[in-house]
């Protein structure tokens, strides 16, 4: 039983990170109807901003204040990066076929990875040890061990989800996001500046990815320029699992995927953890392609 609870906690903190990334995929899909494959690399940049904040910009390590500041910096820088990517890579293709945008997204992803791998202008290709942003300790509850980083992951995720929920459901800009995702033409006819709302969506999604990157790096010893690929794909699976375009779905999908993966590992199948995640994708596409919480949407012609 305690073994099960232990895995549940591990799965939740992994799932929380997937959920944060998945929200970005699903929000962008909501407003532009395409998968932003560069999103996983924004996640990577987020982790690297956390690294630089401590190693180069000399924020205090092992401190709550320094850690939160690094988190805030990563979120702000990635929000700006997301807006720039949209402005210069995707906006010129507005109104073109989704396929063109999708290929561009893959191009942006490769660009970010290669810039990051470059020794002169980027971080270089080698993995780097991620500093301890926050003070670290283990809490023991009976037979359970919870690390302080896991607690931070859960708290930060909950706070960010609550903030996102509030923004999307109770602010004018958030309501405009939902309006735009339902019908962009009608949105522009009530005076919504669609380009602004799309930029805002990218800022929001990218800042969540940055938070995800930092939280992910806290629980894994090293970071490298290709670190975004696998978590990014998993989060994409989570977004599809929950129903692409559906915000609560992305959160639920992330948590479910994190739990499934952790339980597979706990049952001795660690070799198959990635295979299981993508098996989930195949299964959901076969059985319920609109996702757990998604509604079937007819393609408009």
């Amino acid at each position: 039983m305690s073994e099960f609870l232990q895995q549940l906690i591990n799965g939740l903190s992994l799932g929380a990170i997937y959920a944060l990334i998945a929200l970005g995929y699903t929000m962008v899909y909501g407003v532009l109807r395409f998968i932003n494959f560069a999103h996983s690399d924004v996640f990577m940049v987020g982790a690297f901003v956390g690294y630089y904040a401590i190693e180069k910009w000399h924020l205090p390590a092992n401190s709550i204040g320094g850690g939160l500041l690094a988190l805030a910096m990563a979120m702000a820088i990635c929000a700006a990066l997301g807006v720039l990517i949209e402005r210069f890579a995707y906006r010129p293709l507005r109104g073109r076929s989704t396929l063109s945008v999708l290929i561009t997204a893959i191009g942006v992803s490769l660009l970010l990875q290669n810039v990051a791998q470059n020794r002169q202008i980027g971080f270089g290709p080698n993995p780097k040890a991620f500093p301890n942003l926050f003070p670290y300790s283990n809490f023991h509850l009976g037979a359970l061990t919870v690390s302080s980083n896991q607690v931070i992951v859960l708290i930060v995720t909950l706070v960010l989800l609550a903030a996102l929920y509030f923004i999307v459901n109770h602010t004018r800009t958030g309501t405009a996001m939902r309006a735009l995702s339902f019908n962009p033409t009608a949105a522009s006819l009530v005076g919504i500046n669609n380009d602004f709302i799309i930029s805002f969506t990218f800022a929001l999604g990218s800042s969540l990815a940055a938070a995800g990157g930092i939280l992910y790096a806290l629980n894994y010893p090293s970071i490298d320029p290709l670190m975004g690929t696998l978590p990014g794909l998993k989060a994409f699976v989570a977004a599809v699992l929950g129903g692409i375009g559906n915000l609560p779905g992305a959160a639920v999908g992330g948590v479910v995927l994190g739990l499934v993966e952790t339980l597979v590992v706990a049952c001795g199948g660690s070799t198959y953890r990635d295979a299981v995640a993508f098996g989930v994708l195949i299964l959901i596409l076969l059985v319920r392609p609109s996702g757990l919480l998604g509604k079937a949407e007819r393609e408009k012609v």
Partner: peptide
Amino acid sequence: VARGLAQVPEGRMVFANLTVQENLMMGAY
């Protein structure tokens, strides 16, 4: 729209995912 020239589009195009109240608030965007 900002200049006072509004349109009720063909097929109504209400935001079917929002409440009546939210639709009206979007009208007042």
